[in-house]
Design a binder for these strands. Structure first.
Lengths: 237, 237
DNA sequence: TAATATAGTGCCTAAACGACACTATATGAG
DNA sequence: CTCATATAGTGTCGTTTAGGCACTATATTA
């Protein structure tokens, strides 16, 4: 039998296969708080419980796993997040009552203002303060996934400016530092924080300023590849 | 309908689902070279081509995805590698001729001596120098996966001593440095390399020495959690 | 005009890597 | 036995970059 004959006779459905889903941990920063997007499950299993947004691959629509997660997030928020990165794949026989299951998880970031209006119109979708979400008993193993995403984002905040994607396109350095501090959970040295960003030339000065009661702060926007840049040295841990 | 009724009526096979596999990039270090384990495919599709070791989840045997990858590697090498870490999950409609597919990939490391005898007895399984494997046209998207694993391992070599798992339990510091250099692709400063390992107290002096023609080198073994330790600063990139 | 608030800088210290010369301890040849 | 050679391991200084904190800059508001 050659390969062509094999493929013609092949039936995917004939084999047992774990249930495969894609989930996302979408973070944003709003009112001095890190928040995560949760959805209330409207169907069995775990009906009525809060969970991370996600769903099944649509084989006719999605070309990649990232297509799936972006599509699902767009359904919930109305927009495609500017930052989406694979987090981890959780799998096992005990994480879903329907049987052996696998979920490919992503971390995503978005500016709160870019999707607030859409989320307000959809029921069963909400931004929840991370501090509160941590204490909730989420569906499946989603509490574990959330903790894992927080820890990974925390690491990234120590050696990159990825957290900037949780802010609007234009932002100030004090704002960015506050996001980092919210993620890391402790205050950072202003000088250290600013110096390394300047030295690596990661931001573009828009020429505009924004005032918040004191001296106006310079508004910056990210340079194209700045999200991929990693500092060779971590901030204090 | 309550959840119990829903679960009784639920049939996993009734839904289309991507093909799910688990693959591993198993590295070792032997004769001054970084090597990767490859297997020759004995079945369709891509029959006769070299590929990364891997396979399907066995729902009755495996409790987690890591169980699957460890089981598959044990089939090929006869032993369970001391280091196994999830790498990335690749998925899409074009990576397998059988249709939409997903592979959860792992990086693993093992000492060459711990599995050489077993591998010699199995046909279609071989250690291939990474420099050569890079140039081969592997099955599916395995060439891409190999490159991804190399890059990730290279990063790890800059801020951890994970590469030590590619050596036997007892090893010398010059040996470890050579593994790091093979992975990174350039020479490292002996002093910098040794200093950070000593300062972080990652290794245990076994009291033994090993001579290779000059002054004998101290034999060390890894401390329990040393693989998880990350230096706050990378070596020069 | 002065008090206050927030943004941004100067400058010294500390930690850790880079570079490289130097010492230490084996083996093996004459 | 001694010396050349090879490999292991250390001393030390310069460089880079973060930490710390006081200082300056520029807005608003009483």
């Amino acid at each position: 039998m050659n390969e062509e004959e094999y493929l013609q006779g092949y039936d995917k459905g004939a084999f047992e296969a774990p249930l495969l889903t894609v989930d996302a941990v979408l973070f944003t920063y709003h009112q001095d708080e890190l928040k995560v997007l949760l959805v209330e499950r409207s169907n069995h299993p775990e009906k009525g419980r809060w969970a991370l947004p996600g769903g099944f691959v649509a084989e006719d629509v999605d070309k990649t796993l990232e297509d799936t997660v972006v599509r699902k997030l767009k359904e919930k928020t109305g927009v495609e997040p500017p930052y989406v990165e694979q987090l981890y794949t959780f799998g096992g026989d005990d994480r879903d009552k329907r049987g052996w299951s696998v979920t490919v998880c992503y971390t995503a970031l978005i500016a709160h203002q870019d999707c607030q209006t859409h989320i307000d119109t959809v029921s069963g979708v909400a931004w929840v303060k991370v501090a509160r979400a941590e204490k909730m008993d989420l569906a499946f193993d989603h509490s574990k996934i959330l903790r894992y995403a927080q820890e990974r984002l925390r690491q990234k905040a120590l050696y990159s400016i990825v957290p900037a994607y949780a802010l609007p396109k234009k932002f100030t350095l004090p704002e960015l530092q506050r996001v980092h501090e919210a993620i890391i959970g402790k205050p950072l040295q202003k000088k250290s924080f600013r110096r390394r960003i300047e030295q690596a030339d990661l931001l573009i000065d828009t020429g505009e300023k924004r005032s918040e009661g004191g001296r106006p702060a310079t508004l910056y926007r990210m340079r194209a590849k700045s999200g991929d840049y990693t500092f060779v040295r971590n901030l204090e841990q």
